[in-house]
Each structure stands twice: as C-alpha cells, then as structure tokens.
Design a binder for these strands. Sequence first.
DNA 1: TGGAAGATCGGCT
DNA 2: GCCGATCTTCCAA
Length: 183
Amino acid sequence: MVDAGTAAEVRARLVEVEAYLGQDDPASHAFRGPTPRARIMFGEAGHLYVYLSYGVHHCANVVCGPAGTAAAVLLRAARVEHGEPVVRARRPGSVPAAPPLSGPGNLCRGLGIGFADNGSDICGSGRMHFEAAPAGIPISSGPRVGISRATDRPLRFWWTGEAAVSGARRPHTKKGTGWWAGP
DNA sequence: TGGAAGATCGGCT
DNA sequence: GCCGATCTTCCAA
C-alpha cells in the first residue's frame, strides 16, 4: 500500500486497490494485447494509465510490472490526509460526511486526475508522487468489483475497517453476476 | 461501419 | 434497490 499525493496540495492514503494482470487476466484492458488504449500498460512500471469508464468517469491505474507484462493496479479509494478542502472543491455536491475519494471515479475527480495524466510518470517528474506506507497495516483481500470476467480472483486489496473503502456498490446485474460475498 | 458492452456514480423511489 | 447518463473501445459483418 502506498501514499499518493498531487502537487503537494493534496495528500491521500490509498486504502483500496485492485490488481490487473495484463494479458493473463480476462478482466484487464490489456487482455487483448497492446491496443491503442491499453498500450500504456505495456510500457514501463511507474506510469499512470487513465481511462474513461462508462463514458462518464475517469479511472486511474498504476503500471507496476516489467515492460511488456501490462500488469497494473487500479486505484479504487483513498483517505484524504491533507488538503481535503481542495478535494471537496473538485467534487461539488458531494456528501460532506462521506469519504470524498471512495470509488475509482470519485478518486480521480477528487485528485484532479484526467487524460492529461495518462502515461505520466508518478515516480519522477509527474504531477503525482507515491510513497511506501508504514508496515503493519491490516490488509484484506477479496474478489474484484464491477467486472464480469475472472471474478473469482481475489485481486482486490483494502485496509481492513477503513471507511473510505468503496466495496461493491452494485454488482453488474445485466449478466447475473451474483458472486459478491465481500465483507 | 454499426452495434453492444462496460474496472461507475448520483439521484430517485 | 433501481435507473439513467454518456462515450470510448472493440468486435462482427
């Protein structure tokens, strides 16, 4: 688990992520190979892959495997530790009591992540930077959320008991995926 | 070239 | 708990 920040004005701690294993993972955008959209994931680790979900929401992945493997981690939720007014300002109308970075779409909007960040280097000159989180944090794992393929793989990881974890809000029901049995 | 699916969310009932 | 918004991507013809 890592800490994430944007331009030092906002500091947030990632509390929920999902792993996508590239061409070995039917649920990954990289499953079909280096398409124009997914080619970022086939590059070097430490870069950001941003895509548009349902034509409405941006979602952010961090490329984490060697070049060519297309392994990536989807950022699903974070807890704001510094700069919450900035995050709230990016999400007008959000419920004040609710965690502002719960859910991949909300996380991107709150941190100001968009297509401009697609392919950016989060380890070096990029607008974002990531740091290792302290050891000893209780981590849970379970099935990934909102996908219709490879749903049995426990590749979702979250801080146990963390309020900002988004979890399965409404599993896709079009195809009758009734797998959800999370915490 | 057309159609369908989709790693979502907020609002309404 | 259910529904609509909205558009990119990919597959099939």
